[in-house]
Design a protein around this nucleic acid. Structure first.
Lengths: 185, 185
DNA sequence: AAGAACATGTAACGAGTTACATGATTGC
DNA sequence: GCAATCATGTAACTCGTTACATGTTCTT
């Protein structure tokens, strides 16, 4: 009912898929949500605190006899209701993806062609590395986590990452080619 | 030499392509850089002030005899050098594009299929609208601005927008189909 | 006369990152 | 013993948006 930001919902959601500590949440984000979301510890810990305060999660602290300081969080039914409400709420306008490669390209008249081409080559390589990461994660899910109820949804998001990245890679290749042809004239 | 952020360079760059006021910069961004960059007035005006302070731009103020309050900015040679230095500096790591549609999809096990499908349909429509906008701008550039020296670079960035958007649209269609098939089982 | 577009600017707020601080456990 | 990994947390800072304030000019 209150209106949290998307990051808060992301954390709430992660509590439902086996992540029960700030550290586990961070790991999951870095490994699996990496292509469409990221969160730093500076957000995670204060948000978890907030969730407990607002009764959307509970916390169990392990701190007996010199044992390591550890906290386990669990979503409450109020938290689940909040999550479902967010899930069904309409999607926002597509946010602008700030792309500094395109920003530089936009102004690249002020620069020799070979510099521009070098940037595009570098960008292409980074994109290819991303693509490869998606494939690796995909294979891991298919081979090891196919029992997991959430797995089909995870594969959908990976498919998105792969397709969009592949399109960007193709664009790089074609644009590099165009710049090379242009130079020869 | 100082190290400005990308937004500052965007504004500096726009000064070189015929935008000489805060208002003109805002318009250009909303019309042409819209698919990979956006800036609000809350950033533009303070940044222009900073550029003048740092000698990267000059300002000419029109404020005689009840005339409208207007300022014209021009890049200095120091500004041009700074812009070129930024252009040739290596590109950063690809930033994570936060996508709240994918974020919801990731947790959509907690939601009936038809809700998920509805979100994807809505997303697809928004993407198609974007695609159409890119086409319109592209045709405008080809027909009216082909003399413009920067035009080829603008077309490259538009091509990127079109390709990536088309890939996302295809993904939407296919994912909706998969969800429909899944439901029938 | 009215409303849209032109035009500039600031203050408060919210989101998110980075750097720092701390300490336990595990594997080599 | 040492390094990597596990584990939690905060404060300062940067970035960017939103809401507000103000006034002009053009079009109908």
């Amino acid at each position: 009912m209150k209106g949290y930001n998307h990051t808060t919902y992301a954390i709430l959601g992660l509590l439902t898929i086996g992540c029960h500590s700030g550290y586990a949440i961070k790991q999951m984000i870095d490994q699996s949500l990496n292509h469409f979301w990221k969160i730093s510890y500076g957000q995670i810990y204060p948000t978890l605190k907030q969730l407990v305060q607002d009764d959307l999660a509970t916390v169990e602290e392990t701190s007996q006899e010199g044992k390591p300081h550890k906290k386990e969080y669990f979503i409450t039914s109020k938290g689940e209701a909040e999550l479902r409400e967010w899930l069904q709420s309409p999607i926002d306008a597509i946010p602008v993806e700030k792309n500094n490669v395109l920003l530089k390209l936009f102004f690249s008249r002020h620069q020799p062609h070979d510099h521009t081409i070098a940037h595009l080559e570098a960008y292409k390589q980074k994109l290819q590395a991303h693509y490869h990461t998606y494939e690796t994660i995909e294979q891991m899910i298919v081979s090891q986590l196919h029992e997991e109820k959430d797995a089909p949804y995870w594969l959908f998001t990976l498919d998105y990452g792969k397709r969009v990245t592949a399109a960007a890679v193709d664009w790089c290749s074609d644009t590099i080619q165009k710049l090379n042809d242009w130079e020869e004239i």
